[in-house]
């Protein structure tokens, strides 16, 4: 299918960082099964650096590829950098996503930010500048445009 770029297909076929981290320092889960995409991110954070990251995804090809790429983009990065991840960066790193699949990259950004927030909450610290996206209206349930 020429629906996806080679990059997307590569990350879909060979997703990086699949799995779980036991006793993760931060966990973020977004999406719901009703809409067809769920992402869960696990973070291991040491000295304010993303020492390890894993993901689990229920979803389409671009959802799996977006999770994989997002984890690659933040792995080894300082928390302060990981916080700045955007869905745009994920989509660009994948050489683009079809318009109706951009929500998959949004989910990846959100999952990571949620996991960072979870980390901050557990540590009792504040991550200045971490803006959790508002609970995005699920396009499937609410009919909102993507």
């Amino acid at each position: 299918m020429a629906l996806y770029s080679e990059k997307v297909m590569d990350h879909f076929r060979h997703p990086r960082n699949v799995g779980v981290i036991e006793n993760a320092d931060g966990i973020g889960e977004v999406g719901n099964a009703r809409c067809g995409d769920i992402m869960k991110i696990y973070l291991k954070i040491e000295n304010n650096v993303i020492a390890d990251v894993k993901f689990e995804t229920f979803g389409c090809g671009s959802a799996i590829a977006s999770s994989s790429m997002a984890t690659e983009l933040i792995k080894g990065q300082p928390v302060s950098e990981a916080m700045k991840l955007t869905n745009k960066a994920v989509a660009e790193a994948l050489d683009g996503l079809p318009a109706h699949k951009l929500h998959c990259s949004v989910l990846a950004e959100e999952a990571i930010k949620k996991a960072l927030q979870d980390y901050a909450d557990k540590q009792g610290v504040e991550l200045e500048g971490l803006c959790l996206p508002e609970e995005t209206a699920c396009p499937a349930c609410c009919g909102a445009p993507v």
């Binding site: 297909m9 076929r13 809409c35 979803g59 389409c60 959802a63 929500h103």
Partner: peptide
């Protein structure tokens, strides 16, 4: 959709009623 893509890799043409294959989200 991910099921279809992986089956395609194995040479199998199939279809699905998943939202992601229909181009809509339902």
């Amino acid at each position: 959709e991910s099921l279809l893509l992986l089956l395609d890799e194995k040479g199998i043409c199939a279809s699905s009623g998943s939202a992601c294959t229909s181009g809509s989200l339902e």
